[in-house]
Computed example of a mutant assay.
Amino acid sequence: MQPFVYNALPARVIFGSGTLSQVGREIQTLGCGKALVLTGPSQSKKGEVLKNDLGDLCVGLYSKATMHAPTNITDEAVELAQSLGADCVVAIGGGSAVGLAKAIALRTDLPQIVIPTSYSGSEATAILGQTENGIKTTQKTLKLLPEVIIYDVDLTLTLPAQMTITSGINAIAHAVESLYSTDSNPITDAAAEQGITRLAGALPVLSEDPQNNKARSDALFGAWACASCLGVTSMALHHKLCHTLGGTFNLSHSETHTILLPHTIAYNAPFATAAMAKAARIFGSASAAQGVFDLAKNLGAPYSLKQLGMKEEDLEQAADVAMKSPYPNPAPLEREKILSLLRDAYEGKRPL
């Protein structure tokens, strides 16, 4: 077997249905008793319910978590946590709420319990992408890793159909990039293949039957498997472009991942043939790029940047930003080729 290095991340994972009821016990296990609950505006009702359920274990609720973790929102949340004397944070919601918890932990070192309600995967990584002055940057440190992740399948049953698809393909992107990562290994490869398989099987079922409990369970487990890969391998061109378009042009996170993934796969495929052959087999397609594109489009997800409101004249700037700061990638990073990739994604062309 080929030599490899694998760094396991020290997080406690609780998976099942009805597991939200265990939050109070987990707060106490951490030695805490003054939790600040974090949500985004769309999940504020869930945050209120959780706050009330926790009773004296909760000191407040902050419900302004925002996509791409803008630093001014973090400033406000940190000030609230400190004024209330919070000794931990509990995030319930998608990537915005989880990202805010991590941003607070980076500044304060407060313990985190995170309860994802989508398939974004941020909860399983020690990585934070935050935005300031229109630029999204990433940091990687174990201070960002949540102490406890609670996966409750029941919380995903009401996830809207389109968000289910785009969030699921966002998760698949984590696994795909890990397959051709410079630090991939047999453990992450196995997790990536299992994650992609579970999600590729579950998403078509959920597009027809959003309340299908087995498919929801498979999708949530698949998202965790994909996220576990993201946490321990190096991401490449795909994530760089998504951060660029999200941070600079404020495009929706999961939808941007969904649209770009077929094109970034096609860009890298000639330099990662073995990895992409694994993904293609899972999708039952001639190529991994076409498999992802067809999956997304057939399930009604957006497939062009034009649909998200991206302006064609901004593609040049996006290519310039994507070329800044070196990062590992299977294929050489060439501005004109990246610009061509972005134009194909803008038009929604099916990869060759």
Rank of each mutant, 00 (worst) to 15 (best):
S21H: 13
P160C: 11
P204C: 13
G16A: 00
A223Q: 06
T74E: 05
F293I: 10
L342Q: 00
L308Q: 07
R343C: 05
T125N: 07
T188K: 01
R335W: 13
P3D: 15
L206D: 01
A81E: 13
K102F: 06
T74D: 01
L352M: 10
T39D: 08
V153M: 08
A69W: 00
C242Y: 01
C58Y: 01
A202C: 08
H238E: 12
T125L: 01
D87G: 10
A124E: 03
Y267N: 09
P351K: 06
D189W: 03
G134C: 12
A318K: 02
T166K: 03
N329M: 14
A200E: 07
N329W: 11
V292R: 03
P186H: 02
P3C: 11
L54K: 05
L333C: 08
I165T: 12
A279M: 09
E208R: 14
N52H: 12
D218Q: 05
G31A: 04
A192I: 00
G47D: 09
A173Q: 08
A11H: 10
F15V: 11
R107N: 13
L110N: 11
L159C: 04
Q22F: 02
S184R: 13
G121L: 15
D218F: 08
A202M: 08
A236P: 02
Q43K: 07
K306Y: 02
T188W: 03
V37G: 05
T233G: 03
V98S: 10
R350G: 00
Q112E: 15
C242T: 15
G33M: 06
L305T: 15
A319Y: 09
I73L: 09
A91G: 15
M67I: 14
L220F: 08
A171V: 07
R335H: 14
S254N: 14
F4N: 10
I115W: 00
G40Q: 02
